[in-house]
């Protein structure tokens, strides 16, 4: 690099800064969950939602709350940064979407927004509630809007759901069908944190409660970061080839009863871009695919009973396309399509 010219700032720098702030705030609040934090940030930047499969008391609420509270709202709208809904069998759709209430002075019905009008929504034990509520919830997730009394109210653009379900204790639940699981970008199975982190959780109990880190991230910054990532993280055409080949392999796999939808591949792209940005890259690398594939594809597949580990099946089908992609880089062949004109100077994202 030429030292005489100071390199112009990378266009992804603002996004990286947002990610850094959010990451540091979340990591300060939750110990030993760096991987989950990374995935949640990925989903946030990819405009997706997350389903956590977890046991009670593992820090989901803390995580969601810390995320919500890290995002300040400068737009002036009264949107709560964070809401938590405990889903129960007797919950009604209006309990989360809000209801229209008759206002005697004006003589009109006035819409009172429900908890869904928030930046970050924690939907606790989503499989405990009735399909009616689930469907209302899922519509809002997909369309970012709610319809009450035939009036459609848009949700905030940032709207981000962290849903949880308990993998055990399944009595009296309404398991989500695959079509509904498809609304979630990731399904993350969490396990107990390691010993050192758990000790640290106990040690830092007081500080974490009292002293939140200083800087907040504004809602707009997150929205801008999303746009920057979509625009500036380069997805090589070979990556798409690899994704499609993987999906075809999965569909052909004899242990897979239902394969991947095309939508899941489409959703995969922003996730890969976000992941690459978080890793400090401005292009998607094969290892992003390797890392994200189980989280994105896992809950969208129906695997034959007794087929064993889903992650293994996914990696099995991924191995060949990925190896092909990896070897391609050494073949030194020209990219399939010409890359866009160099929009920014080189150098890794900080």
């Amino acid at each position: 690099m030429d030292p005489s010219t100071t390199p112009a700032p990378h266009p992804l720098t603002p996004a990286a800064e947002v990610a850094r702030v959010l990451g540091s705030r979340l990591r300060a609040a939750i110990k030993g969950r760096d991987e989950v934090i990374n995935l949640i940030l990925t989903a946030l930047f990819a405009d997706g939602h997350v389903l956590l499969e977890d046991y009670p008391g593992s820090g989901k609420t803390t995580l969601a709350k810390a995320l919500g509270e890290s995002i300040s709202d400068a737009s002036g709208q009264h949107i709560a940064p964070f809401r938590r809904v405990q889903f129960t069998p007797d919950l009604l759709p209006s309990d989360i979407t809000g209801v229209s209430i008759f206002d005697p002075p004006t003589g009109r019905f006035e819409f009172r927004p429900g908890p869904i009008f928030a930046h970050v929504l924690l939907a606790d034990e989503i499989n405990r509630t009735s399909p009616k509520v689930q469907s209302a919830m899922l519509e809002s997730m997909a369309e970012k809007q709610v319809t009450v009394d035939n009036v459609t109210y848009p949700l905030d653009q940032l709207f981000f759901v962290i849903a949880t379900q308990n993998p055990r204790d399944l009595a009296g639940t309404y398991p989500l069908p695959v079509a509904q699981l498809d609304r979630f970008l990731f399904k993350i199975n969490m396990d107990y944190i390691d010993r050192d982190s758990e000790v640290e959780v106990l040690n830092t109990r007081r500080q974490r409660r009292s002293a939140p880190p200083d800087r907040l991230v504004s809602r707009d910054e997150v929205i801008v970061a999303r746009q920057l990532i979509e625009q500036y993280v380069y997805v090589h055409p070979l990556i798409n080839h690899c994704l499609v080949d993987t999906a075809r392999n999965l569909r052909a796999h004899k242990k897979v009863l239902q394969g991947l939808s095309t939508r899941s591949l489409v959703l995969m792209i922003p996730a890969l871009q976000s992941m690459a940005m978080l890793a400090g890259r401005d292009f998607v690398s094969p290892q992003d695919i390797y890392y994200l594939a189980p989280y994105v594809f896992g809950h969208r597949l129906v695997i034959a009973p007794g087929a064993g580990d889903m992650k293994k099946v996914v990696h099995e089908c991924l191995a060949e396309p990925l190896e092909q992609l990896t070897r391609m880089t050494l073949a030194g062949q020209a990219p399939v399509t010409a890359p866009p004109a160099d929009p920014f100077p080189a150098g890794p994202v900080n």
């Binding site: 690099m1 380069y234 090589h236 160099d342 150098g347």
Partner: peptide, 17 residues
Amino acid sequence: TDLHMRAALGPAAPRVG
């Protein structure tokens, strides 16, 4: 490796001599 991958899959070849 980073330089190599950037050149292969990135938007443009890294400007490295």
